[in-house]
Design a protein around this nucleic acid. Sequence first.
DNA 1: TCACCCAATGCGAACGTTCGCGCGAACGAT
DNA 2: ATCGTTCGCGCGAACGTTCGCATTGGGTGA
Lengths: 339, 339
Amino acid sequence: MNRKRVSLKDVAELAGVSYQTVSKVLNGQVHASPETLQRIQSAAQKLGYRPNRQARSLRTQRSHMIGYSWEPPQAGQANFILDLFLTSMVEEAEAAGYHLLPFPYREGSSQIQSYQNLIDAGYVDGFVLTSVNYGDARARFLTEQGFPFVAFGRASAGLDFPWVDVDGAAGLRLATAHLIERGHPRIAALAWPADSRVGNDRLEGYLAALRAAGRTAPPEWIARGEGTFAFAYAATRRWLEAEAAQRPTAVVAMNDTMAIGALHAAQALGLRVPQDLAVIGFDDAPMAEFLWPPLTSIRQPIREAGRKCVELLIKTMDGQALAKHQVLLQPELIVRASA
Amino acid sequence: MNRKRVSLKDVAELAGVSYQTVSKVLNGQVHASPETLQRIQSAAQKLGYRPNRQARSLRTQRSHMIGYSWEPPQAGQANFILDLFLTSMVEEAEAAGYHLLPFPYREGSSQIQSYQNLIDAGYVDGFVLTSVNYGDARARFLTEQGFPFVAFGRASAGLDFPWVDVDGAAGLRLATAHLIERGHPRIAALAWPADSRVGNDRLEGYLAALRAAGRTAPPEWIARGEGTFAFAYAATRRWLEAEAAQRPTAVVAMNDTMAIGALHAAQALGLRVPQDLAVIGFDDAPMAEFLWPPLTSIRQPIREAGRKCVELLIKTMDGQALAKHQVLLQPELIVRASA
DNA sequence: TCACCCAATGCGAACGTTCGCGCGAACGAT
DNA sequence: ATCGTTCGCGCGAACGTTCGCATTGGGTGA
């Protein structure tokens, strides 16, 4: 690799001006006489000059990097949206002259440590957080530090920070209302543990839709678990073992993996979907349409969310006092054969 | 944000030595007297000193960043492995003091331009490439430039560079041999277009397994298409419309999406899987186990691949002449109910 | 006792930018 | 002619490191 780096000095020499002038002219900070402007531009062009990133960052004390880390994939808990989310953030960031810096996800106290390190080393100018929950430690820490960040997802009411979220309650209202409209008398829910902010948000939509229809949800038809296939399969099976006039006619699940568990439970008992049991999922996983029957599910506007996160963060980092720094996006019900 | 950055000078002042000495001592380049070592270490500790990244990079002319971009997700062509691949690379990189720099994927001539820009601006010290194909333009460009990179996947024989790949041929040999062993007389293949290096590699395994069993593959049982559900569905349906004694009894697909297409085609014709048609996929997508029937598929050691890519790249960047800079990993057949 | 050496630390410079200030020339106004 | 004023550009400094070399001081050899 014999590339010699081309710097401001090289351009300046070719253009016959001082290198500081080249800097200012190329950055549009001063306005030069037409002919020097021309000379500088063509010199830069000819040499293929690109400002050195580290030098620029060192001087300006801005890294133009956005830190991001995500929960690593675990067996049976695939992350269906990372791909889209990441791609959209990278694209949006690039358009604004920023880059994403992915770093390993840590749990516990070393988690904050890794954020601290990135800040102290001047690696990043801000963060995007995902998988936030009530009283999120990262959100609290960054807020205390006054370090810019945007969360995809909300936390406790007490913490005030910029966030982007998908209205999970609205999603489940859509799903539940859809089932009510189709005449389902008994609708069960596969939910997340009570300490899950996202889970409770979605569940609230389910409850609200029932209330709106003048119904009430019997507590035994809300099963809370880890969001896995196995949990959903077992819970659904238990429900379905009641006699036909008593058991749920439909199930809404807070994610697609659980919806699939419900699907399988029904089929294992020889029941037909959606005639004997309707099922609606959440996430619209890539393969949802290829399941049997194709899964009705709630699709989140992930690209939009990624873009908004970055957009908001950049504004925050630029020090713009944001009048409105919370964005709630609406999901969409994708109706397929399962409900 | 009122954080004042703590620099070498601050540490030096507290420890009562020059800041250059602090640098060398902390980097282990000189060995100091026990008491100054102690003073320096505790001063650094106390102030929470972290070397500034940009300054270090500027001086050493190494960014310690690895550029990576991937084909963006498109409808119906989900990327099932990005999550794992990215996570493993990020972790491996971090362990070696590197970070990943994701950047938007571009097509055509501007693709090379984006690599060029990152190099010129000193953004990255090396690249990881995926989705390489015969005569890959990026691989060619980087080779010419002598700029370090590692590819996940091979290219043409003419291009010599470090790569990591999964032995797709071995995967399909496994799958095909499995079907032969189960007594399938007629095995068809859902393949990729002939200009796909990955596709041809996998197909070669299918052919090899047939040859090894003393069989020959009739050309009409190799369907080449875009790897989509729709293509596979149509192709399989065409095969299955022949009378029972003539049609394939099994299908191997070069990806899971096509395998699912085959599954659906069979079921649409009232055929049972695996009794009437056995199906094997490739990728072991997260939901493969939840399909009906659960999909037999070939699983690639993606974590391992990600780690190896980064490991190889770092060695290359460190200028180590690699004796063996090609790694071929073996996939695994995950046998489920579909075959 | 002197020359020498090695170990421990300091010093100046450089990496490539950006930023504030200053200076000369040209200009219109008095 | 003289005096600001503006315009175009240059200069020095700084961001926080690392690196090579110089400098000190205490020990060791003859």
